[in-house]
Amino acid sequence: MSWTSALGLAWTFTWRFAAGLAAVCLLFLVVYRFLPVKGTTLMGVRSLQGQEVSAEWVPLSDISPHLVRAVIASEDNKFCRHKGFDLGELKAAYKEARAGGRVRGASTISQQTAKNAFLWPGRGPVRKVAEAGFTLPMEVLYSKRRIMELYLNVAEWGDGIFGAESAAQKRFGKPAKDLTRREAALLATVLPSPNKWRVDPPGPYVRRRSGTVMARMRTVEAEGFDACVFR
Rank of each mutant, 00 (worst) to 15 (best):
residue 1 M to E: 08
residue 2 S to K: 06
residue 6 A to Y: 08
residue 7 L to Y: 11
residue 8 G to E: 07
residue 10 A to K: 11
residue 11 W to T: 14
residue 12 T to N: 07
residue 14 T to Q: 09
residue 17 F to P: 00
residue 18 A to C: 12
residue 20 G to S: 12
residue 21 L to A: 14
residue 23 A to Q: 07
residue 24 V to N: 01
residue 25 C to P: 00
residue 30 V to M: 13
residue 31 V to A: 09
residue 35 L to Y: 05
residue 38 K to D: 04
residue 43 M to V: 00
residue 48 L to T: 02
residue 51 Q to C: 01
residue 51 Q to Y: 11
residue 51 Q to E: 15
residue 54 S to Y: 08
residue 56 E to D: 07
residue 57 W to K: 00
residue 66 H to F: 14
residue 66 H to W: 15
residue 66 H to Y: 15
residue 67 L to Q: 03
residue 71 V to Y: 06
residue 72 I to C: 03
residue 76 D to I: 04
residue 81 R to G: 12
residue 83 K to T: 14
residue 84 G to Q: 13
residue 89 E to P: 07
residue 90 L to Y: 13
residue 93 A to W: 09
residue 94 Y to N: 02
residue 95 K to I: 06
residue 96 E to R: 15
residue 97 A to H: 01
residue 100 G to Y: 06
residue 102 R to I: 01
residue 104 R to D: 01
residue 111 Q to F: 00
residue 112 Q to P: 12
residue 113 T to C: 08
residue 115 K to M: 01
residue 117 A to E: 03
residue 119 L to R: 09
residue 122 G to K: 08
residue 131 E to F: 07
residue 137 P to H: 02
residue 137 P to E: 03
residue 144 K to H: 01
residue 148 M to H: 08
residue 150 L to W: 04
residue 151 Y to E: 03
residue 152 L to W: 06
residue 159 D to G: 00
residue 162 F to R: 06
residue 162 F to C: 05
residue 165 E to R: 03
residue 171 R to C: 08
residue 171 R to F: 13
residue 174 K to D: 01
residue 175 P to E: 10
residue 175 P to N: 08
residue 176 A to N: 07
residue 182 R to M: 11
residue 182 R to K: 15
residue 189 T to H: 05
residue 194 P to D: 06
residue 194 P to C: 06
residue 195 N to S: 15
residue 198 R to H: 14
residue 203 G to C: 06
residue 203 G to D: 15
residue 205 Y to D: 05
residue 207 R to G: 03
residue 207 R to E: 15
residue 212 T to F: 06
residue 213 V to Y: 02
residue 214 M to S: 12
residue 228 C to R: 10
residue 229 V to I: 15
